[in-house]
Amino acid sequence: MDFALKLAAFVFIVYVVQSRETVRIVKSFKLNANIMYDCVDIYKQPSLNHPLLKNHKIQMEPSFSISKRKFKVKSERRSKKSIQCQNGTVPIIRNTKEYVANAQYWAEKHFHSLTVKSHGTHIAGVISRDQGPYHGLATWMSVHDLNVSRDQISYASIYVGSALNEQLNFIQTGWMVNPSLFGDRRTWSFGIWKGANGAGCLNTICPGFVQVSKTEILSGPFPYPRKEERALSVSIVQDKESGNWWTADIRYKGPDKFIGYWPKELFDVIDISAEMVGVTGGVQASPSGISPPMGNGHLPTEDESDSARVKNLRIVDSNYNVKDGFQIKLEKLIDNEKCYGLIAGKKRFLKVSNLFTYGGPGGKSCGI
């Protein structure tokens, strides 16, 4: 499998480092039967126990502000069970034995290093890798509920990454349905990274991601379907001054909500910039070879109301200038047109209204 396909695929190596320090819990929020968030002192959050962050000073807010064209459609990440931590505290997921064990299971049994073939992984998306280096990207993507079994995953995400010799770094965030990990069949937001020495982490299972917001979380369930469309406007942008990689919810109205960041110290290849950026839908098949649905579970059409879709891609170039997707050369990545599809959007009035539609039903004959 081509390196770009491998990077775009949802693959990672998780190691679990649990802090032995007792952290005082101010307040807790239960998102489902298995997932609990605790409000803890921002300066005592477990991520700061990472050995590479020994002398790290928390960056309370980014130095940049991306000027953006307002999205014409709303987006929403927050669950109805919203989190409201007190000033000076941040929400940190409680790493129960079951949650950690489920993450380890998926890392060891269903995901592979980018140096080997990722069996059962299929993707449909776009990538830019010839006009870098890059300092980030942001986009709007529709969010969907899917019928995914406990031994499958379906997701959509943005990512930044680079490879140098045998070293690989990447950051990926978006939404996914993963019943085995979360303990339910809802759609959740997520974030993963892989950095120096091959270390990596899903969400905040191990130290690394620094939480800054007291209300917005990296991984939480989306509200159940309503009359309005559900969508996520998400970003990964490197701060020019600190080098940290920030993620935020881009809001339809009002200021963007910065969640937190992956510190520069975690990386040895994308500490300065990234060589590729992309947006992709993807799936991980069950051990039996049955592939789950992707996107909204249907093959894409040019009628965006019937399809899973990605819009308003913006890329931060080597000079930290924000460019619209149509200004950047994008390659299509799709590895199985039998089960999944991708249709590029059309330029309308010098802007891309619809970057691409994608998805498919999956099934028994999608291959590995």
Rank of each mutant, 00 (worst) to 15 (best):
Met276Phe: 00
Leu355Phe: 13
Ser305Arg: 13
Met294Val: 13
Leu333His: 04
Cys339Asp: 02
Ser353Arg: 13
Ile315Ala: 00
Leu330Phe: 11
Ala248Arg: 08
Glu302Pro: 00
Leu330Asp: 05
Val237Gln: 03
Ile315Tyr: 02
Asp271Asn: 12
Cys339Ile: 10
Phe349Cys: 13
Gln284Gly: 08
Tyr320Cys: 02
Ile290Ala: 06
Ile250Phe: 07
Ile259Arg: 07
Gly359Asp: 03
Glu331His: 02
Val352Phe: 01
Ser318Ala: 11
Ile334Gly: 01
Gly278Leu: 00
Asp249Ala: 14
Asp303Trp: 15
Ala285His: 05
Pro263Ile: 05
Trp245Asp: 02
Lys323Val: 12
Lys264Arg: 15
Lys329Cys: 00
Lys347Glu: 15
Gly362Arg: 02
Asn244Glu: 10
Leu266Gly: 03
Ile272His: 05
Arg314Val: 15
Leu333Asn: 02
Ile328Thr: 07
Lys264Asn: 14
Glu331Tyr: 03
Lys329His: 10
Asp268Val: 05
Leu355Met: 12
Lys347Cys: 12
Gly278Trp: 01
Met294Ala: 03
Pro292His: 10
Pro287Arg: 11
Pro263Gln: 00
Ile250Arg: 15
Ser286Met: 11
Gly325Phe: 06
Asp271Gly: 06
Asp249Gly: 05
Val234Ser: 12
Arg309Gln: 10
Ala308Asp: 10
Thr357Glu: 11
Gly278Asn: 00
Glu265Leu: 02
Lys329Ser: 09
Val237Asn: 00
Ile343Cys: 02
Lys351Tyr: 10
Gly341Phe: 09
Met294His: 05
Gly341Cys: 11
Phe258Tyr: 13
Asp303Leu: 13
Lys257Tyr: 07
Tyr320Asp: 03
Phe349Lys: 14
Lys311Tyr: 04
Leu350Cys: 09
Ala285Pro: 11
Tyr320Ser: 00
Asn321Tyr: 11
Asp335Lys: 08
Asn296Glu: 14
Val279Phe: 07
Gly295Cys: 07
Ala285Ser: 15
Gln238Ala: 04
Gly295Val: 08
Glu331Asn: 09
Asp268Phe: 04
Ile328Lys: 01
Val352Trp: 08
Gly282Gln: 06
Ile334Pro: 01
Ser288Thr: 14
Asn321Ser: 12
Ile343Lys: 15
Gln284Ser: 13
Met294Pro: 09
Arg230Gly: 08
Pro293Cys: 09
Lys332Asn: 03
Phe258Lys: 13
Ala308Ile: 11
Ser288Ala: 14
Leu350Glu: 14
Lys338Ser: 07
Val352Ala: 05
Glu241Val: 05
Lys338Cys: 03
Ile315Cys: 02
Asp303Val: 12
Thr301Asp: 07
Gly278Lys: 00
Gly282Asn: 06
Arg230Lys: 12
Gln238Thr: 06
Ile250Asn: 08
Gly281Thr: 01
Thr247Phe: 08
Gln327Gly: 06
Pro293Val: 06
Ile270Asp: 01
Ser318Ile: 10
Asn312Pro: 04
Ser286Leu: 11
Tyr320Pro: 01
Gly297Tyr: 10
Ile334Leu: 06
Ile236Gln: 02
Arg314His: 04
Ala231Thr: 11
Leu232Asn: 10
Arg309Ala: 09
Gly360Pro: 12
Gly360Lys: 05
Gly278His: 00
Ala274Asp: 03
Gly325Val: 06
Asp335Leu: 02
Ser291Asn: 04
Lys311Asn: 12
Ser353Lys: 15
Phe326Thr: 07
Ser286Tyr: 07
Pro287Val: 07
